[in-house]
Each structure stands twice: as C-alpha cells, then as structure tokens.
C-alpha cells in the first residue's frame, strides 16, 4: 500500500513537473479573439451553441491538433457531467508573413435542463502550440449563459400573474392587420376610382352637376356678344340637364325643381335675356349692368340651389 501511495505521489510530482514545463506563451507571440453566440439566455435541452475562436500565433509555433476538444466529450465539474457536450470541432488554418491564424469553429449541444432557469457555461478550452522545441498553451475562456426550462413549473393561473413585466397576453394579429391594411388600400383605391367616375374628371361628384360645370365654363367665356350668346346657351343646357328635358320657361321648371325657388326671379330674368339674345333682339330683359357678370352670379346662385345650400 505504501508502495502504491509512493508511486502515485511520484507520478503526480512528475506530472506536475511536466505541466510546469509548459511555458506561458509570450503574449506578443499570440492573439486570441472569440465570437460568441448572439444571445446568452433562452437555451434549453437540444439547443446547439456555436462559438468561433480565432488564434493568431507567430512562427514557428503551430497548433497541436491533439489539444483540440474532442467531439462527444463533455467537461465534468465536481465529477459530475455539466451537460454541455462538444458536438463538432473544425479548424481552419491560414498562414501569414510572420504568423499563422487558426480559426476554430466549436459547437456545443445542451443536454441538460431544469424546471427553473439556471446558469451554465461553455467550458474553457486549452489549446496547445509547439515550436522551438517547446510547447505552449493558450486558454480559451469559458462563456456563461442561462439554460431555460422547457415548461413553466406547476399550474399557471394567468389571472394571478400580475407581473408588470409581462404584457397582456394577446393573440398574434399582425397577419390579420396586414390583410386589413391591404383591403383598406383596395377600398381606398376603389373609392377614389368611384369618385373619379362619378365626378367625370371633376374631382368631386357635386362638382360635376350641370350648374357647377356651367359656372366653370362661364369663367372662360369672353364678355362680347358671342361670349354672351355662348353663355346663355350654356345656361340653357344646364337647365335642360337639371330638368331632364327641354326647359323653355321658368314656371314649369320651378314646379319640377322647387329647390330653385330662391332664384325664381332671376330665372324669369334669364329667360327674358334668352329671348332678347336669341329670338327678339329689342325685347327688354331688365338686367342692369354687365350681362356677363350677372350671368356668372346667376349660375353661382343656381349652383348653390343645386347643392341645396340655399
């Protein structure tokens, strides 16, 4: 027993001597960068975490492949499996002028879970390099993350969960909102189209009514005799279009369209003016001042009656 104990102590001392033999690599001869997984929470059993380690060493040092983690292994802690297993290890090597760059792609798979969230870590790795008859070791630091449970422990009563951190539990309605927005777009285009059709290119439906159009047309006409003839003719057309048939005098028109009663007197005057312009040049029409101005005002008043504003 003593022999065995002695042999073991001797072996340990020898091993310790061998470890101590590994010189610490000159920091100027090596540089290390790691690219960690994008998040450090929310992992659960079966998830794979990948990290990339980039080690640049000066010549003539070279990576010792035997020091790389072995797929299928998992580190133990206090003689218990940590549940983080090395899944795959790949190495890319690229040589520079004075240095050699090793890119290690390490992936680990989680094989543990708890009913509550708990901390875990990708284990530290020790990568060895050899050169100039010496071996050197580089430590890749561990990386902490949290493992989440697969399900909430115990029964969940939403009504009692008054955590202010948890928002209201809502159904995902984004898809329906997208459909709604698309339909609203179609509806808006349809309405615009309908307005355009009803308005016969007059922007708004009410703007396309006979006297509204006439009102606009009269603005373009001149103040001479020809312009007045055209204007009176245009107003006649508006009366005809409003009544749905030829209108030749005020009384029958007002009977059919009582909305124009407020301008009854002006309508009478208009037909007298029409008589003078088209049928009996000498007949008095009773309009004082500029006839075209009166006609424009008259059509504006008729337009207001047409729109029910008077």
């Amino acid at each position: 027993m003593k022999k065995i104990l002695f042999a073991a102590i001797t072996l340990l001392l020898l091993t310790g001597a061998a470890v101590e033999d590994l010189a610490v690599l000159d920091p100027r001869a090596v540089s290390l960068k790691t690219v960690e997984p994008p998040r450090d929470v929310g992992y659960t059993v079966g998830d794979i975490l990948s990290r990339t380690v980039i080690i640049e060493v000066k010549h003539p040092y070279e990576l010792l492949p035997t020091s790389l983690p072995i797929a299928g292994n998992q580190k133990k802690r206090q003689n218990r499996d940590q549940g983080i297993e090395v899944r795959e290890v790949t190495v890319e090597k690229s040589a520079g002028v004075n240095t050699t760059t090793y890119t290690l792609h390490l992936s680990y798979q989680v094989f543990t879970n708890k009913i509550v969230a708990r901390p875990a870590a990708l284990p530290p790795e020790f990568i060895k390099f050899g050169g100039k008859g010496e071996n050197f070791e580089v430590r890749v630091p561990s990386w902490n993350f949290r493992i989440s449970p697969l399900a909430v422990y115990g029964s969940v009563v939403i009504e009692k969960d008054m955590s202010t951190f948890r928002g209201p539990l809502l159904l995902d309605r984004s898809k329906h909102e997208d459909i709604r927005n698309a339909l609203l777009g179609v509806l808006a285009i349809s309405v615009l189209g309908l307005i355009y059709i009803l308005g016969t290119s007059n922007w708004l439906p009410r703007m396309g009514r006979p006297f509204a159009q006439t009102c606009r047309d009269l603005r373009k006409l001149g103040n001479d005799d020809e312009g007045i003839r055209a204007a009176v003719s245009r107003v006649h057309q508006a009366f005809n279009a409003t009544a749905g048939h030829g209108v030749f005098e005020a009384t029958s028109f007002l009977l059919r369209k009582p909305g124009f009663e407020p301008v009854a007197g002006d309508i009478e005057r208009f037909f007298k003016l029409s008589r003078t312009v088209f049928f009996e040049p000498g007949a008095p029409h009773g309009i004082e001042g500029d006839v075209m101005t009166w006609l424009r005002q008259f059509t504006r008043r008729c337009r207001d009656c047409e729109r029910g504003l008077k």
């Binding site: 003839r229 006649h236 030829g246 030749f248 029409s274 088209f278």
Partner: peptide, 8 residues
C-alpha cells in the same frame, strides 16, 4: 320631341 329638342 318638344322635351328632347332644346332651343337654343
């Protein structure tokens, strides 16, 4: 005819 034809 009277209703359809306008003057002027």
């Amino acid at each position: 005819i009277v209703n359809t034809i306008s003057a002027p």
